[in-house]
Design a protein around this nucleic acid. Structure first.
Lengths: 338, 338
DNA sequence: CTGAAAGCGCTTACAG
DNA sequence: CTGAAAGCGCTTACAG
């Protein structure tokens, strides 16, 4: 590989001049410039970003640690981060903690060693405090994505609370009085926010909390399918809300097993949802998380933080979109308990 | 940030010794070692991977350029690459060409400047020759993933041909004589291989090529939905095969629009498929590409190439799994033209 | 068992 | 308009 000194020799100038030509950092006579450029061409020179970064103590790269790159919503966020980073001329270093606190810590450490200019982090469910401490101690700017929860850091996520409230108010408006919320692992802030939004509307509407079913359950210890089945078996709710794609799949399966028809026997709404909701029968009412935008916003926030270390921490909530479809169409389900 | 010289001063040793302790590269007296480790602890020292890489001319990182990180199959491959890289202690630099040849070229260049130890590349449809030339000229080992096509480089993908042959032989065995293949953009090797596998079985079974429908179409210029509709409208085929998730969605939509029932009116099989195929009605016969394994294998191949620059180029094909479901159940569809 | 010093490939004051 | 030289933070022959 050709180095800058090779180019300099070839062009009959100093490396100083080569550097300035390449970076446009000072005036260089046109003729000299041409010679340098020709030498670059001839030698196939390519700048060494490592050496450059070492000298400038800036790598023009950011790290992204995501808890589950396999899940569709996260895959979309990764995509959003990727695109926004590319648009800013930043290289993306991707790590996946796979929902393991230990791997998360290792990933953060590895990225810090790589001297990333900043970091975007979607924390795992049982994320260790050390991770944030380490990040803070390192002075590397960071942004929390999707999994929020501290208020003295930049963070961006969907407006889970607002979206859930909107959805549930709609259902209550249709006449639903007994609902089943499949909430999942509420240690995860996203899911906790959705559950709390649900309960808030239940209270606000004057419904009896005892009439509602809330299925929670830690990821891994999978009691959720059984709990859904149990809830469906007892005094039947008239509407079900599933709070993530995985939970939606489990819910649909439970409904099929129990031969409960949507929307005739029960209304169904899902969060995040499936890639092609219109191909389902019935078409599924879906609260779509703006995952791509969340990822892009994380990069924007990070850039702003890098530019100004001292500004107030920001929390950005990006609106979700409720797509009303057939699965919550008003049907006989409501009549059953009327 | 503490540097190695800080640690050395704190421990009362040379940076040489600190380096050797940290890397385990030579014997150091236990007592000295302890002092160094304590100094590391005390100073919160963290090795600078940049400086290290510059000196060793190895970054312990690999680059991945993917043509469409948003598509489920690619998202899974990214996941596979990510996991395998992490297991090898390699950091992953991710770039997305978003099916643009220009962005692809830029991404490759940026990763080369970052001095990655190797590169995994899923090329875009109209990928420029310069990209491969540049890669070869750089002497950085690389592996082609999913989008294969040159035989003097390492490459890994699904066994598209074999999977398609198996599927079509099954359909022919059931009695299907007129089939519709929704092949998509056959400039993409993956899709071309699937189409060719289809045609091979048609010939092998002695079927008339004129009785088969093959819908092709460049990505972007989207004539595919109309062509599917047209094929369905004329002398109806008894089986449809869609060669990707996107094509499967378009096909399902066309079938719904035309009120053609699966599997009663027509059999349907899809490649790659949807995240939860069992939630569809009917459950979809799916040829599942081992995307995660393809990604993992790409990293393995790359590591082997890095270890031995001179070995023969390898082409690895990973078996797909045909999941027979209800959408190709033998039904009245076959009788219609009997 | 340990250290002084060169060098990886750049950028950037400093000087002219 | 241009160049000599220091230095970013490491690793690693070389020497003892």
């Amino acid at each position: 590989m050709a180095r800058m000194s090779d180019v300099a020799r070839l062009a009959g100038v100093s490396v100083t001049t080569v550097s300035h030509v390449l970076n446009g950092t000072r005036r260089v006579e046109q003729e000299t410039k041409d010679r340098v450029l020709r030498a670059v061409e001839e030698s196939g020179y390519r700048q060494d970003a490592l050496a450059r970064a070492l000298r400038r103590s800036r790598t023009d790269s950011i790290g992204l640690v995501v808890s589950d790159a396999g899940e569709p919503a996260f895959a979309e966020m990764v995509h959003g981060v990727q695109e926004a980073a590319a648009a800013e001329g930043l290289t993306l270093l991707l790590a996946n903690s796979d929902e393991s606190p230990e791997r998360e810590e290792n990933a953060v450490r590895a990225l810090l060693e790589r001297r990333v200019d900043g970091m975007v982090l979607a924390r795992v469910a049982g994320s260790r405090d050390e991770v944030l401490a380490e990040l803070r101690g390192s002075d590397v700017p960071f942004v929390l994505m999707d999994r929020l929860g501290v208020d003295d850091a930049d963070q961006v996520g969907a407006d889970n609370d607002a979206a859930m409230r909107g959805l549930v108010r709609g259902l209550v408006g249709q006449g639903h009085r007994r609902m089943l919320l499949v909430a999942g692992d509420t240690r995860v802030p996203t899911l906790r926010e959705r559950r709390d939004g649900f309960l808030a509307v239940v209270d606000e509407a004057g419904l009896d909390r005892a009439d509602q079913f809330v299925v929670e359950g830690e990821r891994g210890a999978d009691t959720v399918p059984a709990d859904i089945a149990a809830a469906l078996a007892t005094s039947l709710p008239t509407a079900v809300i599933a709070c993530s794609t995985v939970l939606a799949a489990q819910t649909l399966e439970a409904l099929q097993d129990a031969r409960i028809a949507v929307p005739d026997d029960i209304a169904l709404a899902v969060f995040d949802g499936f890639a092609y909701p219109d191909l389902f029968q019935p078409r599924l009412t879906t609260v779509r998380q703006p995952a791509f935008e969340v990822g892009a916003a994380a990069v924007r926030l990070l850039r702003e933080r890098i530019a100004d270390k001292d500004r107030e921490p920001q929390t950005v909530r990006i609106p979700s979109v409720v797509q009303q479809r057939d699965s919550t169409a008003v049907g006989p389900a409501l009549g059953r308990h009327a």
